[in-house]
Computed example of a mutant assay.
Amino acid sequence: MRAIVLREFGPAGNLRPEEIPGPVDEPGWVRINLRASALNWHDVLVRQGRYGSPLPHVPGADGAGVRADTGDEVLIVPSLWWGEDESFPARGWEILGDHRPGTYAEAVRVPAECVLPKPRGYNWAQAAALPLVGLTTFRALFARARLRAGESLLVLGAGGGVATMAVTLAAGIGATVVVTSSSERKIEQARELGARDGVLYTEPGWPRAAKAIVSGGFDVVLDSVGTWQDSLDALKPGGRLVVLGASRAEQAPLDVRRFYFGQYSLLGTTMGSPRDFAGLLALLAEHAIAPPVIDRSFPLDEAAAAHEYLEQGGGFGKVVLDHQ
């Protein structure tokens, strides 16, 4: 089968198309003939060697396609072996494409419990783009932060997959959403998805400007970049800071006294469990929420170009690979 193979960690150009053997059948596992896969920043870290993937390796966590045994149209939940405790993943938990062959291929093998029907009305690109960002965002906003209708949410960033998913999910349930960005164009695009407004984080004092939009501060801040002090500056007393990334900073000094006098909650989160994904699907069924935003599609063989585009940071929404 055709696949994108990484034989050496490093730049995007190390992702090259090759012909490799297809997945081997095994009880309890399902072969999916993929129609599309989606890129995540996590894939970039895999490519760079941050997760110690075995080489040679086929990356990719997200995908959608057809079950080889039944012909059903499905998507893949890339959260493998989460375990029974919903508060924290089990020791053996991993993300598809970390240590096992992933979705940058014509076919992939996954545990049967990680295969679910493709949502009605979704095309292949939208279905492939939903799982990782949908699951990650649902867990962050609803399983961890307990966001409710009528509350306010600040999303740091406006253009990435998690950010656009957060805007659509939160606005879809009736929360007030504000975003940050370095681009007025992305703020306008976020408004079109349901955000009330946005602020430029390149401007001094942007947390104050963001708080003014919602008259006093946010109930929840979703921080995928690691700028905790700015995030706390935007919260109202008693607010919840949800952290799921460190793309801009990996160290975050805090004013400890201010933190505890403010009665803030600091919540770490990752991609969630299959049960979280069931909650996501129920939420999508209950509310009129649009499918994931697709920024750009590349042919499978152009995965390297897709990674380069993703790393430039200029897009709005998800980058996908077309396998057809």
Results as ranks from 00 to 15, higher is better:
10 G>R: 11
11 P>F: 06
18 E>F: 07
20 I>W: 13
24 V>G: 04
26 E>V: 10
31 R>Q: 03
34 L>S: 08
34 L>D: 10
37 S>Q: 00
40 N>P: 04
41 W>C: 02
42 H>C: 03
42 H>E: 02
45 L>M: 12
50 R>V: 10
50 R>P: 04
51 Y>E: 05
53 S>D: 08
57 H>I: 03
60 G>Q: 08
61 A>L: 13
64 A>M: 01
65 G>C: 06
65 G>N: 12
69 D>V: 14
74 V>A: 10
75 L>G: 04
79 S>D: 04
80 L>Q: 10
86 E>Y: 07
86 E>C: 03
87 S>V: 03
88 F>T: 06
90 A>C: 05
92 G>D: 11
92 G>R: 11
94 E>A: 11
94 E>L: 13
97 G>D: 05
111 P>Y: 10
114 C>Q: 12
118 K>Q: 03
119 P>I: 13
119 P>G: 08
121 G>Y: 09
127 A>D: 10
128 A>Y: 14
129 A>W: 05
137 T>S: 02
139 R>T: 03
141 L>Y: 08
141 L>D: 02
141 L>F: 10
143 A>L: 07
143 A>K: 01
145 A>P: 07
146 R>F: 06
147 L>K: 05
149 A>E: 15
153 L>A: 02
159 G>T: 05
159 G>V: 08
161 G>P: 04
165 M>Y: 01
167 V>F: 04
167 V>H: 07
167 V>W: 09
168 T>R: 13
169 L>N: 06
172 G>E: 10
175 A>Q: 07
180 T>P: 01
180 T>Y: 02
182 S>A: 11
192 E>N: 09
196 R>T: 14
198 G>I: 09
199 V>Q: 14
203 E>Q: 15
203 E>N: 15
204 P>V: 11
206 W>M: 10
217 G>H: 14
219 D>Q: 14
220 V>R: 05
221 V>T: 10
226 G>Q: 06
240 R>C: 03
243 V>D: 00
249 A>V: 02
251 Q>V: 05
258 R>K: 12
258 R>S: 10
258 R>C: 05
259 F>I: 10
261 F>T: 13
262 G>K: 08
262 G>Y: 14
266 L>I: 02
273 S>Y: 08
275 R>V: 08
275 R>I: 05
288 A>L: 12
291 P>Y: 07
292 P>T: 08
301 D>I: 04
302 E>P: 06
304 A>W: 12
306 A>Y: 09
311 E>W: 13
311 E>M: 15
313 G>F: 12
314 G>R: 15
315 G>V: 10
324 Q>P: 11
324 Q>H: 12
